[in-house]
Simulated scan of single mutants.
Amino acid sequence: MTNVTPDRAHYSTTMKLLRAGKHVLCEKPLAVNYREAKEMADAAAASGKVTMVNLTYRNVAPLQAARKMVLDGRLGAIRHFEASYLQSWLVSKAWGDWTKESQWLWRLSTKHGSNGVLGDVGIHILDFAVFAAGSDVKAAASHLKVFDKSPGNRIGEYDLDANDSFLMMAELENGAAGVIHATRWATGHLNELRLRLHGDKGALEVVHTPEGSTLRACEGADADKAIWRKIEVEPVITNFQRFANAVRKGQPDEPGFGHAAKLQFVLDHAVKTAGALTEL
Protein backbone atom coordinates (compact mmCIF):
# COMPACT_ATOMS: atom_id res chain seq x y z
CA MET A 1 0.00 0.00 0.00
CA THR A 2 1.13 3.56 -0.74
CA ASN A 3 0.11 6.15 1.85
CA VAL A 4 -0.28 9.56 0.18
CA THR A 5 -2.57 11.12 2.79
CA PRO A 6 -1.78 14.59 4.25
CA ASP A 7 1.15 14.74 6.68
CA ARG A 8 -1.05 14.84 9.78
CA ALA A 9 -2.80 11.62 8.73
CA HIS A 10 0.35 9.54 8.14
CA TYR A 11 0.49 8.22 11.70
CA SER A 12 -3.09 7.02 12.10
CA THR A 13 -3.48 5.61 8.60
CA THR A 14 -0.11 3.85 8.52
CA MET A 15 -0.66 2.26 11.93
CA LYS A 16 -3.99 0.90 10.70
CA LEU A 17 -2.32 -0.51 7.58
CA LEU A 18 0.37 -2.22 9.66
CA ARG A 19 -2.22 -3.72 11.99
CA ALA A 20 -3.99 -5.04 8.88
CA GLY A 21 -0.76 -6.78 7.80
CA LYS A 22 0.00 -4.55 4.82
CA HIS A 23 3.35 -3.57 3.32
CA VAL A 24 3.53 0.24 3.38
CA LEU A 25 5.30 2.91 1.34
CA CYS A 26 4.56 6.18 3.17
CA GLU A 27 5.02 9.65 1.78
CA LYS A 28 7.44 11.93 3.62
CA PRO A 29 7.54 13.04 6.33
CA LEU A 30 6.86 9.79 8.14
CA ALA A 31 5.03 11.77 10.85
CA VAL A 32 4.71 15.33 12.13
CA ASN A 33 6.82 14.66 15.24
CA TYR A 34 9.42 12.20 16.49
CA ARG A 35 7.12 10.53 19.05
CA GLU A 36 4.76 9.37 16.31
CA ALA A 37 7.59 8.55 13.91
CA LYS A 38 9.36 6.39 16.50
CA GLU A 39 6.14 4.52 17.30
CA MET A 40 5.60 3.91 13.58
CA ALA A 41 9.18 2.68 13.14
CA ASP A 42 8.85 0.31 16.09
CA ALA A 43 5.52 -1.01 14.78
CA ALA A 44 7.04 -1.48 11.33
CA ALA A 45 9.97 -3.45 12.75
CA ALA A 46 7.63 -5.66 14.76
CA SER A 47 5.30 -6.27 11.82
CA GLY A 48 7.81 -8.06 9.64
CA LYS A 49 6.36 -6.21 6.65
CA VAL A 50 8.22 -4.15 4.06
CA THR A 51 8.00 -0.48 5.06
CA MET A 52 9.63 2.43 3.25
CA VAL A 53 9.35 6.22 3.08
CA ASN A 54 9.21 8.03 -0.25
CA LEU A 55 12.14 10.43 0.11
CA THR A 56 11.91 11.25 -3.58
CA TYR A 57 15.40 12.65 -4.09
CA ARG A 58 16.86 9.21 -3.45
CA ASN A 59 15.80 8.78 -7.10
CA VAL A 60 18.54 11.23 -8.16
CA ALA A 61 21.25 9.10 -9.77
CA PRO A 62 24.14 11.53 -9.02
CA LEU A 63 23.23 11.40 -5.33
CA GLN A 64 23.47 7.61 -5.33
CA ALA A 65 26.81 7.83 -7.15
CA ALA A 66 28.06 10.43 -4.67
CA ARG A 67 27.29 8.15 -1.73
CA LYS A 68 29.22 5.31 -3.38
CA MET A 69 32.21 7.59 -3.89
CA VAL A 70 32.18 8.48 -0.19
CA LEU A 71 31.76 4.88 0.99
CA ASP A 72 34.52 3.74 -1.39
CA GLY A 73 36.88 6.22 0.27
CA ARG A 74 37.56 8.32 -2.81
CA LEU A 75 37.14 11.58 -0.85
CA GLY A 76 38.97 10.35 2.24
CA ALA A 77 37.68 11.52 5.60
CA ILE A 78 34.78 13.96 5.15
CA ARG A 79 35.58 17.25 6.90
CA HIS A 80 33.06 19.81 5.66
CA PHE A 81 29.70 19.87 3.89
CA GLU A 82 27.24 22.43 2.50
CA ALA A 83 23.65 21.50 1.66
CA SER A 84 20.94 23.84 0.35
CA TYR A 85 17.39 23.56 -0.92
CA LEU A 86 16.34 26.71 -2.74
CA GLN A 87 12.79 27.46 -3.91
CA SER A 88 11.31 30.73 -5.12
CA TRP A 89 7.54 30.31 -5.15
CA LEU A 90 7.09 33.20 -2.68
CA VAL A 91 8.68 35.54 -5.23
CA SER A 92 7.68 33.82 -8.47
CA LYS A 93 4.45 32.72 -10.13
CA ALA A 94 6.13 29.89 -12.04
CA TRP A 95 4.11 27.35 -10.03
CA GLY A 96 1.03 29.53 -9.53
CA ASP A 97 -0.07 32.42 -7.32
CA TRP A 98 0.58 31.43 -3.71
CA THR A 99 -1.57 34.30 -2.40
CA LYS A 100 -4.70 32.78 -3.95
CA GLU A 101 -4.19 29.01 -4.03
CA SER A 102 -4.75 26.75 -1.02
CA GLN A 103 -2.13 24.26 -2.17
CA TRP A 104 0.49 26.90 -1.27
CA LEU A 105 -1.24 28.82 1.52
CA TRP A 106 -1.57 25.81 3.85
CA ARG A 107 2.21 25.35 3.68
CA LEU A 108 2.58 28.76 5.34
CA SER A 109 0.15 28.14 8.21
CA THR A 110 0.92 26.07 11.32
CA LYS A 111 -2.76 25.64 12.22
CA HIS A 112 -3.26 24.01 8.82
CA GLY A 113 -0.61 21.44 9.65
CA SER A 114 2.51 23.01 8.21
CA ASN A 115 5.91 22.85 9.88
CA GLY A 116 7.11 25.43 7.40
CA VAL A 117 9.98 25.02 4.99
CA LEU A 118 11.76 22.96 7.65
CA GLY A 119 9.08 20.28 7.64
CA ASP A 120 8.16 20.56 3.97
CA VAL A 121 11.53 20.42 2.22
CA GLY A 122 13.97 20.46 5.13
CA ILE A 123 13.59 16.71 5.46
CA HIS A 124 14.63 16.34 1.81
CA ILE A 125 17.86 18.32 2.06
CA LEU A 126 18.69 16.76 5.41
CA ASP A 127 18.36 13.29 3.89
CA PHE A 128 20.27 14.47 0.80
CA ALA A 129 23.21 15.42 3.03
CA VAL A 130 23.36 12.52 5.49
CA PHE A 131 22.72 9.89 2.82
CA ALA A 132 25.56 11.06 0.60
CA ALA A 133 27.89 11.60 3.56
CA GLY A 134 27.08 8.16 4.93
CA SER A 135 26.65 9.55 8.42
CA ASP A 136 23.83 10.80 10.65
CA VAL A 137 23.65 14.11 12.51
CA LYS A 138 25.38 14.10 15.91
CA ALA A 139 24.79 17.70 17.02
CA ALA A 140 22.99 20.71 15.57
CA ALA A 141 21.90 24.28 16.17
CA SER A 142 19.31 26.13 14.10
CA HIS A 143 17.60 29.40 13.31
CA LEU A 144 14.08 29.65 11.85
CA LYS A 145 12.78 32.78 10.14
CA VAL A 146 9.26 33.95 9.30
CA PHE A 147 9.01 36.95 6.98
CA ASP A 148 6.06 39.34 6.66
CA LYS A 149 4.17 38.39 3.52
CA SER A 150 0.88 40.29 3.75
CA PRO A 151 -0.89 42.78 6.05
CA GLY A 152 -1.03 41.15 9.48
CA ASN A 153 0.67 38.10 7.95
CA ARG A 154 -2.77 36.64 7.22
CA ILE A 155 -4.74 35.77 4.08
CA GLY A 156 -8.31 34.61 4.63
CA GLU A 157 -8.34 31.70 7.06
CA TYR A 158 -4.56 31.27 6.83
CA ASP A 159 -2.22 32.71 9.47
CA LEU A 160 1.12 32.91 7.68
CA ASP A 161 3.20 31.94 10.70
CA ALA A 162 5.16 28.89 9.51
CA ASN A 163 8.90 29.34 8.93
CA ASP A 164 9.93 30.48 5.45
CA SER A 165 13.68 29.90 5.86
CA PHE A 166 15.80 27.72 8.10
CA LEU A 167 19.52 27.61 8.82
CA MET A 168 21.24 24.72 10.56
CA MET A 169 24.82 24.19 11.66
CA ALA A 170 25.56 20.52 12.20
CA GLU A 171 28.22 18.00 13.04
CA LEU A 172 27.88 14.47 11.70
CA GLU A 173 28.80 11.28 13.50
CA ASN A 174 31.80 10.93 11.17
CA GLY A 175 33.12 14.26 12.48
CA ALA A 176 32.27 16.40 9.45
CA ALA A 177 30.95 19.89 10.17
CA GLY A 178 28.79 21.99 7.90
CA VAL A 179 25.59 23.84 7.14
CA ILE A 180 22.14 22.86 5.91
CA HIS A 181 19.64 25.50 4.85
CA ALA A 182 16.46 25.97 2.86
CA THR A 183 14.21 28.84 1.83
CA ARG A 184 11.25 29.76 -0.34
CA TRP A 185 12.70 33.19 -1.05
CA ALA A 186 15.54 32.14 -3.37
CA THR A 187 14.84 34.36 -6.37
CA GLY A 188 16.13 32.70 -9.54
CA HIS A 189 15.94 29.14 -8.20
CA LEU A 190 12.69 27.32 -8.90
CA ASN A 191 13.59 24.09 -7.10
CA GLU A 192 17.29 23.44 -6.57
CA LEU A 193 19.05 21.00 -4.26
CA ARG A 194 22.81 21.39 -3.99
CA LEU A 195 25.30 19.42 -1.91
CA ARG A 196 29.05 19.84 -1.56
CA LEU A 197 31.15 17.34 0.39
CA HIS A 198 34.81 18.08 1.11
CA GLY A 199 37.19 15.36 2.26
CA ASP A 200 40.92 15.25 2.92
CA LYS A 201 41.49 13.52 -0.44
CA GLY A 202 38.82 15.03 -2.67
CA ALA A 203 35.47 16.77 -3.00
CA LEU A 204 32.20 16.41 -4.86
CA GLU A 205 29.15 18.46 -5.76
CA VAL A 206 25.64 17.23 -6.57
CA VAL A 207 23.12 19.64 -8.12
CA HIS A 208 19.51 18.75 -8.86
CA THR A 209 17.10 21.13 -10.63
CA PRO A 210 13.96 20.68 -12.77
CA GLU A 211 16.30 20.67 -15.79
CA GLY A 212 18.30 17.69 -14.56
CA SER A 213 20.99 16.49 -12.19
CA THR A 214 24.79 16.64 -12.25
CA LEU A 215 27.73 15.25 -10.30
CA ARG A 216 31.14 16.91 -10.32
CA ALA A 217 34.27 15.88 -8.44
CA CYS A 218 37.72 17.17 -7.65
CA GLU A 219 39.95 14.29 -6.61
CA GLY A 220 43.36 12.72 -7.02
CA ALA A 221 45.89 14.84 -8.90
CA ASP A 222 43.13 17.35 -9.76
CA ALA A 223 42.91 18.38 -6.10
CA ASP A 224 46.26 20.21 -6.25
CA LYS A 225 44.99 22.53 -8.99
CA ALA A 226 41.32 22.62 -7.94
CA ILE A 227 40.17 21.07 -11.22
CA TRP A 228 36.57 19.85 -11.21
CA ARG A 229 35.31 17.23 -13.66
CA LYS A 230 31.79 16.13 -14.49
CA ILE A 231 31.04 12.48 -13.77
CA GLU A 232 28.49 10.66 -15.89
CA VAL A 233 26.25 8.25 -13.99
CA GLU A 234 23.75 5.56 -14.90
CA PRO A 235 20.04 5.94 -14.06
CA VAL A 236 18.76 4.35 -10.86
CA ILE A 237 15.44 2.73 -10.05
CA THR A 238 12.86 4.78 -8.17
CA ASN A 239 11.65 4.34 -4.60
CA PHE A 240 8.44 2.86 -5.99
CA GLN A 241 10.42 0.26 -7.92
CA ARG A 242 12.58 -0.53 -4.89
CA PHE A 243 9.45 -0.94 -2.78
CA ALA A 244 7.85 -3.28 -5.29
CA ASN A 245 11.06 -5.32 -5.54
CA ALA A 246 11.34 -5.50 -1.76
CA VAL A 247 7.77 -6.76 -1.44
CA ARG A 248 8.36 -9.41 -4.10
CA LYS A 249 11.54 -10.60 -2.38
CA GLY A 250 10.16 -10.21 1.13
CA GLN A 251 13.27 -8.23 2.13
CA PRO A 252 13.42 -4.68 3.59
CA ASP A 253 15.01 -1.81 1.68
CA GLU A 254 15.84 1.83 2.29
CA PRO A 255 14.79 4.50 2.99
CA GLY A 256 12.99 2.78 5.82
CA PHE A 257 10.87 3.95 8.72
CA GLY A 258 13.81 3.82 11.13
CA HIS A 259 15.84 6.23 9.04
CA ALA A 260 12.87 8.55 8.57
CA ALA A 261 12.33 8.60 12.34
CA LYS A 262 15.96 9.68 12.83
CA LEU A 263 15.41 12.53 10.38
CA GLN A 264 12.29 13.59 12.27
CA PHE A 265 14.27 13.61 15.53
CA VAL A 266 16.69 16.12 13.96
CA LEU A 267 13.83 18.27 12.67
CA ASP A 268 12.12 18.28 16.07
CA HIS A 269 15.44 19.22 17.66
CA ALA A 270 15.77 22.10 15.19
CA VAL A 271 12.39 23.48 16.23
CA LYS A 272 12.88 22.99 19.97
CA THR A 273 16.35 24.52 20.08
CA ALA A 274 15.93 27.24 17.45
CA GLY A 275 17.30 30.47 18.82
CA ALA A 276 17.51 34.10 17.89
CA LEU A 277 20.73 35.32 16.36
CA THR A 278 22.88 37.39 18.70
CA GLU A 279 22.81 41.06 17.76
CA LEU A 280 26.12 42.86 17.50
Rank of each mutant, 00 (worst) to 15 (best):
N3R: 05
P6W: 06
H10D: 02
Y11N: 09
Y11T: 06
Y11S: 07
S12L: 13
T13P: 09
K16I: 06
G21D: 06
G21C: 03
A31Q: 10
A31G: 03
A37M: 05
K38I: 07
D42C: 08
A43H: 01
A43S: 09
A43V: 05
M52V: 04
V53Q: 00
L55Y: 10
Y57K: 14
Y57C: 13
P62I: 05
L63S: 04
L63A: 10
Q64E: 14
A66F: 08
R67I: 09
K68Q: 15
M69A: 11
D72Y: 06
G76A: 04
A77H: 09
F81M: 06
E82S: 11
E82W: 06
Y85W: 11
L86H: 11
L86I: 14
Q87D: 08
S88N: 13
S92P: 00
K93I: 13
G96S: 07
K100I: 12
K100H: 12
S102M: 11
S102W: 08
S102T: 14
S102D: 15
Q103V: 13
L108G: 04
S109F: 03
S109N: 10
T110K: 14
K111M: 09
N115D: 15
G116V: 06
V117T: 12
L118E: 04
L118C: 03
D120M: 04
V121A: 07
G122W: 01
I125T: 07
D127H: 06
F128S: 01
G134C: 05
D136F: 11
V137D: 09
K138P: 12
A139L: 14
K145Y: 13
V146W: 03
D148L: 11
K149D: 13
P151F: 00
G152A: 04
N153Q: 01
N153V: 01
G156R: 01
D161E: 07
A162F: 00
L167P: 00
L167F: 12
M168F: 00
E171W: 02
N174H: 12
I180P: 04
H181C: 13
H189N: 13
L190T: 13
L190P: 01
N191T: 09
R194A: 09
L195G: 01
G199K: 04
D200S: 01
K201A: 08
G202T: 02
A203I: 01
A203C: 10
L204Y: 05
L204M: 04
E205T: 11
E205V: 15
V207S: 08
H208V: 11
C218F: 03
C218Y: 06
E219L: 07
D222W: 02
D224H: 09
A226N: 15
I227W: 08
T238C: 02
N239Q: 05
R242V: 06
A244N: 12
A246Y: 10
A246I: 07
V247G: 03
G250K: 02
P255T: 10
G258A: 11
G258W: 08
A260K: 02
A260Y: 01
A261S: 11
K262P: 10
V266L: 05
L267C: 03
D268K: 00
H269F: 02
K272P: 00
T273R: 14
A274L: 07
L277G: 06
L277E: 11
